[in-house]
Design a protein around this nucleic acid. Structure first.
Length: 193
DNA sequence: AGGAAGATCTACT
DNA sequence: GTAGATCTTCCTA
C-alpha cells in the first residue's frame, strides 16, 4: 500500500476525482485505524465555477483551495463537515469533494460514531462519511501525502469497475461538464442517476 | 442581525 | 420517493 504523492493531486481536479475512485481513505483515530474505499467524488474549480467555494476569489475560509495540493479542505454545510482534497494543476485553484466511501476497516467504531441501522447508511453521503470517520474542522489543512498524519489516501487493490459520471449533487448553478464520478452499481454511492 | 450553504433525518403519501 | 424541519459556520449588510 503506497500513499498517493502530491504529483497525483497536481492535475485537473476532474481527473483526480475520477482516479480517486477505488483508492483507500485512511483515518487514524488514537490507536484505531478506520478506512474506506472511495466510491464517489466531485471536482470543483476556481473563479470560473459558480458552485465552488473559490468562486469569489481568495478569502480566509477558502484559501486552502489556492494553495499547495494534497491537503484536506474541510468546511461545514447545513451542519455537516465535508471533506475535500486540494487538487489542481500547478498555480491553479481547485479541490475534490469526497462524497462517499465503502467501509473497509473499523466498522464497529463507525457504527458508534453514527447511530444508524443499515450498514450502507454509515458512509453513503459526504456528511455521513465525515461523521463515521470522525472528521471535523480540527483536521482542516492536514497534508494527506505524508505518512503519520491522521488522514491518508493509499492505492487500493487493482480492480475493475465501471466509472459513471453525472452532474454535481445539490449545487445551485452547475457547469455544463459532468463533474461527479462514482463507481457503477456500488451500493454506497449517495445517489443514483 | 440575517441568510446562504457540495446535506441529512424524519414522517409521511 | 418526496417534502419539510433542522443541522452550524461564515459571509454580507
Amino acid at each position: 500500500m503506497h500513499i498517493l504523492q502530491s504529483l497525483f493531486y497536481e492535475r485537473d481536479p476532474a481527473l483526480v476525482a475520477k482516479d480517486l475512485l477505488g483508492k483507500i481513505l485512511i483515518r487514524k483515530l488514537g490507536l484505531e485505524v478506520l478506512s474506506g474505499k472511495i466510491v464517489e467524488a466531485e471536482a470543483y474549480y476556481g473563479g470560473e465555477d459558480p458552485a465552488s467555494r473559490a468562486y469569489k476569489g481568495i478569502k480566509n475560509y477558502n484559501r486552502l483551495m489556492f494553495m499547495d495540493v494534497g491537503r484536506v479542505f474541510i468546511y461545514m454545510v447545513h451542519g455537516n463537515w465535508l471533506l475535500n482534497i486540494v487538487a489542481h494543476p500547478k498555480d491553479g485553484v481547485g479541490a475534490v469533494l469526497i462524497r462517499a466511501v465503502e467501509p473497509v476497516k473499523g466498522i464497529e467504531i463507525m457504527r458508534k460514531n453514527r447511530n444508524v441501522g443499515r450498514l450502507r447508511d454509515l458512509t453513503n453521503g459526504p456528511g455521513k462519511l465525515t461523521e463515521a470517520l470522525a472528521i471535523t474542522k480540527e483536521l482542516n489543512g492536514v497534508d494527506i501525502t505524508k505518512r503519520n498524519n491522521k488522514l491518508a489516501v493509499v492505492n487500493g487493490e487493482r480492480q475493475r469497475f465501471k466509472i459513471c459520471s453525472s452532474h454535481r449533487i445539490g449545487v445551485k448553478t452547475d457547469l455544463p461538464r459532468k463533474l461527479r464520478f462514482f463507481v457503477n452499481r456500488n451500493k454506497f454511492v449517495s445517489k443514483f442517476s
